[in-house]
Design a protein around this nucleic acid. Sequence first.
DNA 1: AATGAATGAGTCTTCATTCAT
DNA 2: GATGAATGAAGACTCATTCAT
Lengths: 220, 220, 220, 220
Amino acid sequence: MAQTRQIRKGKSGQRSHRSGESGANGLRTPDKRRRILDAAIEVIAERGFHSSRVADIAERAGVADGTVYLYFKSKEQILMAALDGAFERFYQRAKEELAPLSNAPAKLRALARLHLRLLNQHRSLAVVLQTELRQSAKFLAEFSHRELKGYFDLIREIIREGQQAGTIRSGMSDKIAAACLFGSLDELVTSWVLSNREYDLAAAADPVIDLLLSGMEARP
Amino acid sequence: MAQTRQIRKGKSGQRSHRSGESGANGLRTPDKRRRILDAAIEVIAERGFHSSRVADIAERAGVADGTVYLYFKSKEQILMAALDGAFERFYQRAKEELAPLSNAPAKLRALARLHLRLLNQHRSLAVVLQTELRQSAKFLAEFSHRELKGYFDLIREIIREGQQAGTIRSGMSDKIAAACLFGSLDELVTSWVLSNREYDLAAAADPVIDLLLSGMEARP
Amino acid sequence: MAQTRQIRKGKSGQRSHRSGESGANGLRTPDKRRRILDAAIEVIAERGFHSSRVADIAERAGVADGTVYLYFKSKEQILMAALDGAFERFYQRAKEELAPLSNAPAKLRALARLHLRLLNQHRSLAVVLQTELRQSAKFLAEFSHRELKGYFDLIREIIREGQQAGTIRSGMSDKIAAACLFGSLDELVTSWVLSNREYDLAAAADPVIDLLLSGMEARP
Amino acid sequence: MAQTRQIRKGKSGQRSHRSGESGANGLRTPDKRRRILDAAIEVIAERGFHSSRVADIAERAGVADGTVYLYFKSKEQILMAALDGAFERFYQRAKEELAPLSNAPAKLRALARLHLRLLNQHRSLAVVLQTELRQSAKFLAEFSHRELKGYFDLIREIIREGQQAGTIRSGMSDKIAAACLFGSLDELVTSWVLSNREYDLAAAADPVIDLLLSGMEARP
DNA sequence: AATGAATGAGTCTTCATTCAT
DNA sequence: GATGAATGAAGACTCATTCAT
């Protein structure tokens, strides 16, 4: 519950809503857009995209229904923007954290840790990413093409670097390897989201990387 | 009377289309249920669950709207039943095909091949599984608990067998290993579904198994 | 108030609405479409097109809101269809009544009488024709082109016939003459509609025709 | 942040467009009211009253949305005021131009010419008068009572003058005669507005007056 | 069992209007 | 006076579901 919610039940007896709100912190429109996005992630995580009413999101964000449409064109655009923003932040951070690392296995490990750690910290976002993002082939395809592709390409690049540097086995498709890494992480997050237990998701990063690097097969 | 009236356009005019069919062999209802399920998978794969109208499914199945409710309690139940059935058939077959195999790596390879081969053959089902199944956390959780869990447990069992037999590395969490295998396959299917190219999905089974068994890291 | 209105206030406590309705006269769906059209004319005459809610029309017609959309594509289509139908009936009747008449002045007189008489009998329709029909240039243009044009052409044809037969002054544009006749009648109806007095509109037919035939100017 | 935010697209970015204009000559509000009225006529002529947003009118007038409400109480009041003003100017001018004329037929001719000439020169106004004025029976009734009645009475007075002076046929209802004249002119304007051709509307004044004065009937 | 016309609850979105600055 | 971001009421339309036949 990152956003303090506005108490607006009944929606009528709130004559001084504007002045009360801005008076509280002296800021006008601090980042109403951001509040709507955060509210959207929370509400959608709780009820699913189709069951979430725009009115719910507005209420959670502490704005009027119509205000949502000053910032976003449609309900779907809210979800899009929320996911875009979240992904953008992740992607940016990933690039920063990987920059200083020198070899491919270390980079993959760092990426896995970051991936799981961030979602571990923001469960609502994880829920939305693992479920609503896939709500429809069209939606997923569009988002996938726009955002996930960058992530995938980043992984593939690291793998190819490793192959050139001799730290990653050659003769292995970087595309398939990237799918395995992403798919493994994604599946862990999904399991974590579906489970109601609050175990530490991030702890799975190392075992997964170890498995993917060394393989399952017993070796003499 | 310049205005043509609507009234369920394109439906009344095809009265004889289907009744002719059932009229040919009397009053039986052999596979009406199955026709509805198949129609549902197709329609939902094309338009997504929420955009699919029950009327669309009924039309595709060649039955009246109301007839659907003689077989299923709700629109959601149709999807449930369709996925349950598909999964049941997959699961049954998997157990049959793995029975004769003697070692864990071979079983995992067979499972991966079957997984990808079947979905490769039934793209509509793949689309629905990879997208609509996740329509909401609740839905996914329920299905996951009911069906996927069996699949997961099967994989974990094979891994543990392998660990006992010494073909799979010990000291590796069977849960995480299963997640990696399932996640990898799942991601490959998702990519295949989202891509519009009709490449052979099944061909990816061996590379994936090789990677998971031997690992990515170069070894001297 | 041509249609008996269904008493459906509250919309809920009416369990037996269907059977009650059909039980009353033994007819199922007598002409639900027609009832909706009649209700639309009444409601729109009372409140104007934009202030009329589809729910109002449905209620007046004694059907559920959604039923309206089984017969018409949109609220606007209801109005269109209602006007089209009314006009069609008028036009048909005009052709029948004029057929036996032999000279242009008599035909024009008959047309004027019919025009005013019919609207005198159906005030709601008159209200809608004189006001809502012109609600927007686009709407009017479309309707005008489709329906009024036929009426106009009919008048022009009669005038040209009269000119050839020598009963109507030559050297007069049939187009302008038709505009004067139609405009005069139209204006009388508008005045009648706007006035709250219930005077006999039809009585104006002869004076108007006399004026248009003989002219205003005093002649020696 | 792939999504561009909206926020009143196309409005914020043109801040300097209008303020530059008013900045050029200080803080006065000379004709802001008039600019709003003119903008309203244009916008409403283009899109119809109900499809015209107050924001559109404000933008066209170069003022902020809220400013409109410093001059007018509601959107409907804008239309009222615009039509009232236009009509007032017409009516004033009519009285001036008719004053020097000595006989009824000449006055009627002058009035028809003025009526058509002015609307010919201001098509947007003509569109609004012929269509939006009739947006609802109530609206039309109110306007009609307030403004058109004066015009009507003027015509009737001229006719009665003519009857007393012997230039207009006696035994003819001045009310019906006025309706015919007004209706004829009105219909010509409507046709002109609906037609997309830009023919000279004013040219129809004389033929109409000739017809109304002399009648359609052929006379020996 | 099968039909399909009818139902009516449910919600996104628009836009006239307000008011703090 | 002027602004324009914010408000929130209002309603057309959809579609899952029912039930009389």
